[in-house]
Design a protein around this nucleic acid. Structure first.
Length: 507
RNA sequence: GGCCGGUUCGUCUAACGGUUAGGACGCCAGGUUUUCAUCCUGGUAAUAGGGGUUCGAUUCCCCUACCGGCUACCA
């Protein structure tokens, strides 16, 4: 069996969105699983849509995910360069070869001419197709005399090279996910292979590079399925059929509600990122949020993406990247599009984040503390993290759930106060302070013991003490257990907060 | 419009032609708890419709409907 070589081949036309990340992930998993190579090729043949910084964004995004490459623009390799714009000179010879063998031809029609032709057809409720039925009445090397063609090209007239699609032939694509897909050749257009700006189109560049880079499997999005027959034809025309890669067309990622392809708009509308990393549009300066900046961690992000279109027969849904590599296979990929579920993404993040060691969590929290001018000891921060870990979905929640370990509350929830703050509460808390003062050492169990005795002596329920206590310490009725919290915050601070709370809430 | 692909709980999905159609997220209820979360237990909920084939279709075939993609000198 031939060596497995797969590639992720994005266009640097903007930020990579999560569908692209999933395509990259599946390619990566397949390469690793099969002991093959994974290539990053940049398909920057469209000079108009090229966006500055997009390539670096793609590299950074996948690197954040932990997806690594064996060859590519950023790491080099035996088939360098890996940027199609730098391989520009390569493609023309293959296009010419196709012309010479009668499989392609030069065409001189201008975009304007073709546009007006399309409009004419549309008026008649027909669809214009540059193909077997029309090519003989258009301006190309099939209709023009050889001398004139040479003269036109020699004089620098703009031309494109179009594939000459055969008439009445069934072309079949074998897809690893969808089985055999057949199409009648005359339904394909005489697609442009080589543009007038000297660049190849996707179709040509893709086939040439996959051949040259010895790509064994093309795993890409479903939007390519309609042009796959053309690619098959190109391999045949170039006499590379023996080396043709296997194809696998992945289902698309759809918007969570309604219908259609997932887009940036959906993320904005529904409040979730569609990009792995934050992206600033170089032209409009518009900033789009990313999973990283929103506080997701890579293992959760990848696990979530992996399951959007792939599943084992077993019920297992939790996978590390290594486990994914071990478990992955193309034949377990599904055929239908998957609606993206931001809630499930959050759940995965909560799952992985809350299982992190305190040292890691502290590493996330300390920079936030610094931003807030807080310089707490590492040991203290780790203790806090251990206490709040279960309540965390996204990294910023760490601060949201723990700020009161570092700062006194500045306000007190009025609704809670109205409900539980009674006339006798201040005196109750004063008495409680006396008890706390005498509690030594000030540990969670000791505080619990004295508190239980205290409410017993007072003949009240635990809640009658704890809720006001909590209100003075945290400012509201949420947070970890009071005994653990109090022991970590420390006796002096706790007592001063209770006192402060009594005066502030009373007024 | 044409071509291609798709269709199992709200969502992601599992199920050699024979299962009480399973799991996860969400939601609901109960439990744990000093609060809010977490966590635990339970519940809710699906084979798009119609024809075939078959002793028996979620599973195979056909039709319809719906959804998606493609239909550029964009990828």
């Amino acid at each position: 069996m031939r060596e497995v070589r797969v590639r992720f081949a994005p266009s640097p036309t903007g930020p990579l969105h999560i569908g692209g990340v999933r395509t990259a992930l599946y390619n990566y998993l397949f390469a690793r699983k099969m002991g093959g190579k994974f290539i990053l090729r940049i398909e920057d043949t469209d000079q108009v849509r090229f966006v500055q910084g997009a390539e670096q964004y793609i590299i950074d995004s996948l690197s954040w995910c932990g997806i690594s490459f064996d060859e590519g623009v950023h790491v080099g390799g035996p088939h360098a360069p890996y940027r199609q714009s730098e391989r520009k000179d390569l493609y023309r010879q293959y296009a010419d070869q196709l012309v010479e063998s009668g499989k392609a031809y030069y065409a001189f029609d201008t975009p304007e001419q073709l546009d007006s032709l399309r409009k004419e057809y549309e008026l008649r409720k027909e669809t214009f197709q540059y193909g077997p039925s029309t090519r003989m009445v258009l301006s190309n090397s099939l209709t023009l005399p050889v001398d004139q063609v040479k003269a036109l090209i020699g004089s620098g007239t703009h031309f494109v090279i179009r594939v000459k699609i055969p008439d009445n032939e069934i072309i079949t694509v074998n897809d690893l996910i969808r089985g055999t897909v057949s199409v009648e050749s005359s339904l394909l257009d005489d697609k442009v292979l080589f543009k007038s700006d000297g660049m190849p189109t996707y179709h040509l560049a893709n086939v040439v590079d996959d051949y040259l880079m010895k790509v064994s499997h093309v795993i890409r999005g479903e939007e390519w399925l309609p042009s796959a027959p053309l690619h098959v034809l190109l391999y045949r025309f170039l006499d590379w059929e023996d080396a043709m890669p296997a194809f696998a067309h992945l289902p698309l990622l759809l918007k969570p509600d309604g219908n259609g392809k997932l887009s940036k708009r959906d993320g904005d509308r529904l409040g979730f990122p569609v990009f792995p990393l934050q992206w600033t549009d170089p032209k409009t300066k518009e900033v789009s949020s990313g999973y990283r900046e929103s506080g997701y961690i890579p293992e959760a992000f990848l696990n979530m993406l992996a399951l959007l279109g792939w599943h084992l027969e077993s019920d297992q849904e939790l996978f590390s990247l290594d486990e994914l590599v071990e478990a992955f296979s193309i034949d377990r990929c599904s055929k239908s599009g998957a609606k993206f579920d931001p809630e499930k993404a959050r759940w995965f993040n909560h799952h992985y984040l809350s299982a992190k060691p305190a040292a890691i969590l502290a590493g996330y929290l300390i920079p936030v503390l610094k931003e807030n001018g807080i310089d707490a000891g590492r040991d203290y921060v780790e203790k806090v993290c251990d206490l709040v870990r279960e309540r965390i979905v996204l990294i910023p929640d760490l601060w949201e759930q723990s700020w009161f370990f570092f700062n006194d509350p500045i306000s007190f929830d009025e609704k809670v106060a109205a409900k539980i703050w009674k006339k006798e509460t201040p005196q109750l808390l004063e008495d409680y302070i006396d008890i706390l003062k005498r509690t030594e050492p000030f540990t969670s169990v000791n505080i619990e013991t004295v508190s239980k005795q205290f409410v017993k002596d007072k003949g009240i329920g635990m809640g009658q003490l704890m809720t006001p206590f909590r209100l003075t310490v945290v400012g509201t009725n949420a947070g970890p257990g009071m005994f653990d919290m109090a022991s970590i915050i420390g006796k002096d601070t706790i007592i001063s907060r209770i006192k402060s709370g009594i005066t502030k809430i009373n007024t």
